[in-house]
Design a protein around this nucleic acid. Structure first.
Length: 137
DNA sequence: GCCAACGTTGGC
DNA sequence: GCCAACGTTGGC
């Protein structure tokens, strides 16, 4: 089991919209970055991830699960771009903001801090547990 | 809305 | 294969 973090601008696709999709889940399309795509290709069914709101809110707001392996992105004919499907599992009891993450030395090595532009990123088990705790889970 | 950081593209 | 130009992301 590996852990990940998915970034989305809530204006484009929010946690609420993800929750509304329920068990069906949603294709994480639109990624046009090789590193992010490679991360999705490495995902397995049942892997867990954080759902992060960028720009507005700037916080981890929920937990998602990978429910379909990497497949061609339906929004493009370009064969380079693949994506997985994810479904909402549970919200954090309280969002963990970027400010909090940056303020915690234990999270200083997070990709979110180190490479803030990568939209799909790996999360270590230690980071996973800590953010869940900070989020009241 | 600005701009720094970063990734991608394309000419050479 | 290098690198300048350009586009995009995302924090502020």
């Amino acid at each position: 089991m590996q852990y990940w973090l998915f970034k989305s601008e809530p204006d484009t696709w929010s946690w609420d919209q993800q929750v509304a999709k329920g068990e069906e889940g949603e294709e994480w399309h639109g990624v046009r970055n090789y590193q992010a795509r490679n991360n999705m290709r490495a995902m397995k069914i049942g892997d867990r991830g954080f759902f992060y709101h960028s720009n507005i809110g700037k916080a981890v707001v929920g937990v998602v699960e990978v429910c379909a392996l990497s497949h061609p992105d339906s929004t493009t004919d370009d064969p380079r771009w693949d994506c997985v499907d994810i479904k909402a599992v549970e919200p954090l009891k309280r969002p963990v903001t970027l400010d909090e993450i940056k303020a915690d030395p234990r999270l200083a090595e997070m990709v979110l801090v180190k490479n803030s532009r990568l939209s799909v990123q790996p999360v270590t088990e230690a980071e996973w547990k800590l953010i869940r705790e900070l989020g009241g889970l």
